[in-house]
């Protein structure tokens, strides 16, 4: 177990370092790190502190958040196909952002878009709580989530459909693909408190999720407060997914693939999978964001496209392996 901690944290640290030194501005490794840590003004320091550092920090935070939320959702629903987007928060956050782009709010102020997305996420949480109720089974939560996702997707399509402005429509489509390009410390400041709060909430679920391996009845009889667990899950997931979507757009597959990939290494325990998936998600997103910059630096390849391109085949392979093992 200690070895896994070591491997994952080393991998994450190495990729974080790589994310800081890889980029279109041609700066050497030593120079860039010196500029980051001790730079006094100058263009190099600006590139490092205002462009690469926020970008690497966001990849780290958002990747960890999505991985952890995915592990928590799979653990709660006892289903390896669950995904943090399942409860409709990413859909409603995206709708909020789309409305901000369409109305021109996003162009008026830099932080209008993430705030509108957060407002969308908040509406989504409210709807989930009303629809699924404070008490109830995991099934009602899934159904409520699917209904909200479908509704948010329908409204997003409606906005695109009726958009009189092709440029706004274009911008919306690109935004929805998910990206970390051109993000600033303002974005980090918006997302960080919510992601930290959400991650703390999700981390408290470890023991309850372990107990849920035996089903809801047995877990409740062992003293697990299922009602509180469910609320914590909803609020934790909403905070991390809402904040992630608000600053980076919709980034799929991280929350789905990473817990699935790491499950065998933690003895399939949902509690341990939480932190392992946090490291794994951070590594995956950092790697994907490096790939975006290395593969087609001139074409603004979108992060969400890369995670889907990598994630979907990986997922197919996992399904194939699962089927072969007869599990």
């Amino acid at each position: 177990m200690m070895r896994l901690v070591l491997v994952l944290s080393t991998l994450t640290a190495a990729l974080f370092g790589a994310a800081l030194v890889v980029g279109p501005a041609d700066i050497g490794v030593a120079d860039s790190l010196r500029a980051l840590l001790w730079g006094e003004g100058g263009p190099m320091t600006l590139v490092m502190r205002e462009i690469r550092l926020p970008r690497a920090l966001l990849a780290l935070m958002i990747g960890a958040a999505l991985g952890m939320a995915g592990a928590a959702m799979q653990g709660y629903l006892r289903n390896p196909l669950a995904d943090p987007g399942l409860i409709g928060i990413s859909g409603s956050a995206a709708l909020g952002a789309v409305l901000a782009l369409q109305t021109g709010l996003a162009a008026a102020a830099a932080f209008a878009l993430p705030l509108a997305a957060l407002a969308g996420a908040l509406v989504g949480v409210f709807l989930v709580l009303v629809l699924a109720g404070p008490r109830g089974s995991s099934l009602t939560l899934i159904l409520a989530g699917i209904a909200i996702s479908a509704l948010a997707a329908a409204f997003t399509s409606l906005v695109l459909n009726l958009s009189p402005n092709p440029f706004a429509a274009n911008e919306i489509v690109f935004w929805m693909m998910g990206s970390l390009a051109d993000r600033s410390m303002v974005h980090v400041g918006i997302a960080l408190p919510l992601i930290v709060a959400g991650a703390v909430l999700l981390a408290t679920l470890a023991r309850g999720l372990d107990a849920l391996t035996l089903g809801e009845d047995a877990a409740e009889a062992m003293g697990v407060n299922l009602r509180r667990l469910r609320l914590t899950l909803i609020f934790g997931t909403a905070a991390v997914v809402g904040a992630s979507t608000a600053v980076a757009g919709a980034i799929g597959f991280v929350g789905l693939v990473v817990p699935h990939l790491l499950r065998p290494f933690v003895g399939a325990q949902p509690g341990r999978l939480l932190w392992a998936s946090a490291f794994g998600g951070a590594s995956m997103l950092l790697a994907a964001d490096i790939a975006v910059r290395v593969i087609l630096p001139a074409r603004d390849l979108k992060l969400g496209v890369v995670t889907a391109l990598v994630g979907a085949p990986l997922f197919l392979h996992l399904i194939y392996r699962t089927r072969r093992d007869g599990l």
């Binding site: 006892r78 849920l212 391996t213 035996l214 089903g215 009845d217 047995a218 009889a221 062992m222 003293g223 499950r263 003895g267 399939a268 325990q269 949902p270 599990l327």
Partner: peptide, 18 residues
């Protein structure tokens, strides 16, 4: 209650390959 009584439900659920 969890210290007073243990409960084995009829549904034999083992969700993960632990």
């Amino acid at each position: 209650r969890a210290h007073a009584a243990a409960w084995m439900p009829q549904a034999r659920e083992i969700a993960w390959p632990v």
